[in-house]
Design a protein around this nucleic acid. Structure first.
Lengths: 112, 112
DNA sequence: AATGTACTTTACCATTTGGTTAACTAGCTA
DNA sequence: TAGCTAGTTAACCAAATGGTAAAGTACATT
């Protein structure tokens, strides 16, 4: 329902699929052709093409062209953005004391 | 088409929505009732309820109960998992030299 | 008992997503 | 030119997603 999702949403959506994450893991070792990228999966080539389009649209890969090959290469900048977004929550997973009980008492005292 | 998505996929999917990320940002300050969480958005309460279910299913929040309130509290563990997953790519966004040209020459020499 | 507050559940809808098969394009090779 | 290799595009489908309005639930207040 949103016309143009923001870039973080595009990145998270692209990462929310194990096939695409596996592709990124492969591309972290270096560029690859589509056929080579497709090898570990039992889905069709058009499905692979679609996954690559999602990754490209999210800015996570860049495509090249040489003869009949259209190799893909990782572009890690959006991952850096995710890492930055996450930093805001680091204290939350490092603390992890229970503030819920405290809050329950608070709203009970305030009575609405 | 996948019956039970893995937990990383659930987490990324939950984060791929700006409304849900804003809710998490609010919850990073401390627990909140549903009504209070809903305040910044112009969507209906059922829509809010659905977003909370997605976050809960991904393990990103825990729900409480006190009288007619069902407060939510951040659970940051899945974010820690994301941070760990990301670490694998840190070198990629810190390097960022261009290996694509190199690869183009390589596959051209190999000819198939 | 009746009303109000804070939600959730149900039923519905349009759009997006992830897959398919079939057809097409681009470039090399024989 | 014909055929192979590598990949994309088109048309289609089922399921998931994000929204709605209306009805239902749980508890508190009057």
């Amino acid at each position: 329902m949103q016309s143009e999702p923001d870039s973080l949403s595009l990145t998270f959506a692209a990462l929310a699929d194990p096939t695409r994450r596996a592709m990124l893991a492969r591309l972290a070792q270096g560029p690859s052709t589509v056929k080579e990228l497709a090898k570990p999966f039992k889905i069709s080539m058009p499905a692979i093409s679609k996954h690559l389009k999602v990754l490209e649209h999210a800015g996570l890969i860049q495509r090249g062209r040489e003869a009949q090959w259209r190799p893909a290469q990782l572009q890690a900048a959006p991952l850096k953005d995710v890492a930055q977004w996450l930093e805001r929550y680091r204290k939350n997973w490092e603390e992890s004391f229970d503030r819920l009980e405290e809050y329950l008492h608070k709203i009970q005292k305030e009575k609405g």
